[in-house]
Amino acid sequence: MSGFINSTHFVWTEPSSYLATLKQTTTIQPLFNIFLTVPFGIYLRYFFKTSFKQTLLLSFTLSLFFELTQLSGLYGIYPRPYRLFDVDDLLLNTSGGLLGFYLQPLVTFFLPTRESLDQATYARGQKVGYFRRLLALVVDYCILGVITFIIALIWRLLKLPAIHSEILQYCLATGVYFLIIPILWRGKTLGKALLQLQIVADHHPRWAIFWRQLLLFFIVIPSFQLWRVTLDAAVASGQQHFDVYLFIIGLSLLPPLLFTGNFLLSWVTKRPQLFYEKLTHTRVISSIHPTQQP
């Protein structure tokens, strides 16, 4: 305290010195070191319901992380430290966390409780929309791409026949990932597990999941590529049998158009069950379960 008074313009008996003192670096730096971790202390007690000792330990650990980061030059990114290890900062940051602990009831008085937040989150998690399903599908296809690459690499190393190898590799990778894994894993793939989704069936779940996945990944999705393949064949043939190819292109466009129409209708009516799910009596549900409240 004496060091603070001697290094600032602060005089108890002169209120005019208060504002000047607040503007000085020797005042601003300690205050900001305290305010830096006040939200951390509030958050720990509000969301995780930590005790005083737990808040003290976690605030000290966070402050120690700051100081070690500065001392190590961001853990070796820089050749030397850009700041010194300051014990005062360590104490001030820890004090800020404890101050936040005591301020939490006042600050969060008008905020919803942790229990109500959990209930609202669970209610939202039970709703399975198309965006969530599409995101799971994107994750699955990223993983499938890695699996396909591995299969293609093994295919080449074993010097297997290259005739229709792409089709065989697709069938092998897709069959393993989208047929076998969901059957063995109770309607889940890695993407669905990550997004907490699950395929369920009304009757004979394994067979129903098998037929659902077979319709989707071996008929519906490939149909979006069929018209392009037919168009390439028509261009390559020139004028020969052009009318026949044109008819086949029209037929190949029919499944994607029907699927798109079915999707739009389902999206507008807010009934996220597409035709291949209705045929197989399956649906996608949320696998999120209510957690036990602390």
Rank of each mutant, 00 (worst) to 15 (best):
F4Q: 08
V11Q: 12
W12L: 11
E14R: 12
Y18L: 14
L19T: 11
T21N: 10
T26K: 15
T26F: 15
T26P: 00
I28M: 12
L31N: 09
G41K: 07
T50W: 14
F52H: 05
K53W: 13
L64P: 00
T69Q: 13
Q70M: 01
R80A: 14
P81H: 09
F85D: 15
D88N: 12
L90D: 08
L91Q: 04
L92A: 11
S95E: 09
S95Y: 02
F101D: 01
Y102R: 02
Y102T: 07
P105C: 01
F109G: 00
F109T: 00
L111H: 06
L111G: 03
S116H: 03
Q119T: 08
A120G: 02
T121L: 14
A123I: 02
Q126S: 07
L135G: 01
D140L: 03
I143T: 06
I147N: 13
T148M: 07
F149C: 07
I154A: 11
L157Y: 06
L158H: 02
P161S: 15
E166W: 03
F178V: 01
I180N: 03
R186H: 11
L194V: 09
Q196E: 14
L197G: 06
D202G: 13
V220C: 04
P222N: 10
D232R: 04
Q240N: 09
V244S: 15
L246T: 02
L251R: 08
G261A: 10
L264F: 07
L265I: 07
V268K: 05
K270E: 13
P272M: 15
R283V: 06
S287E: 06
Q292L: 15
Q292A: 13
